Simulated scan of single mutants.
Amino acid sequence: MLFMTHLSAGNPPLFMDFRKVWEDWEIADLAEKLGIKLFGSTLWEKRGFVDGDNSGSASFDWAAKPGASIEEIMKSIRLPQADSGYFPGGGNSVTFFSPGGIEGIAARLAYSSLSGMYSMIWDEAETQELPQKLAQAVADTSTPIWPHTFVTPKHATMTEYKQFAPANHFHMTWNLSAARFQYWMDLANVLSVTPWQEMPSFREGIDRPQPLLYLVNGGEDTTKRLRRRG
């Protein structure tokens, strides 16, 4: 998470529990039960979203849009009493709903003892803003007094996200370019895992050009494994 912050030149990190994947039909059913009329025009209605929430590791910055003042950020934050069953020491929790429209990269670092290598499961993503009553109902299905950020990946379907995004946490950083992230994975010899059917292998102007070294050695993953062995 911290290296994603450094790669983005210091943008605030968001650390979340990967709580629940809401498919489009699930959120439509919940809205109908609550008497909330949907029109199918928003991204979260079409593709669904992940309810990301955590006990306080989300930066306060995610309570408002990038560039917001401290005063504006704090207007959206509440500090309810902590869950005594989870935090027996007492104190307060931090809670807010992140606004929609924040774009960045959502990712999770994994390690396999079989290969001895790290992998990065990632996709570009955007935060979603639900009607207040619906947002609260979603929050109530997990831990309502923690921060909630509703995240929709750009390429992964919710079915793919359920299978391939590893539990239990994931991270998001805004204004981190895909190319810079890919260059870092090249230098660190980290496998780039993007098994999303909708994601092209190369997007000019977005992805870094694939190194010739990868092409002449059987592909990116094969080359990185050879480098690991060597």
Results as ranks from 00 to 15, higher is better:
A179H: 11
A179R: 07
E129A: 12
D186G: 05
D221E: 14
L213Q: 15
L34T: 06
G230M: 13
I27W: 10
D186H: 07
A110I: 09
R228G: 00
P66W: 03
I70C: 03
Y111W: 14
A110F: 07
R47I: 00
M4H: 10
S59N: 11
G90D: 02
G56E: 08
W184R: 01
S142G: 04
R225G: 00
V193K: 03
V193W: 00
W146S: 08
V216M: 09
T152P: 00
E124P: 08
D221W: 14
Y118A: 04
G56Y: 11
P211C: 10
I77C: 13
S119E: 12
S142N: 10
M185C: 15
A82E: 07
G48S: 04
S93G: 04
D29E: 15
K33E: 09
M117S: 13
V216I: 13
A58D: 07
E204Y: 08
A28P: 00
A156R: 01
A64W: 02
M117N: 11
V138D: 02
P211D: 07
L7W: 06
G35C: 10
V216R: 13
N54A: 13
L7T: 03
W22K: 02
V216D: 04
M185Y: 01
G40N: 05
D83L: 11
P80T: 12
V21A: 15
L226W: 09
K33F: 01
A188D: 08
G100M: 01
T143K: 05
F164Y: 15
R228V: 00
F15L: 07
L114A: 12
G101W: 02
R19V: 11
K65A: 14
L109A: 15
P147I: 00
W122F: 15
D140Q: 11
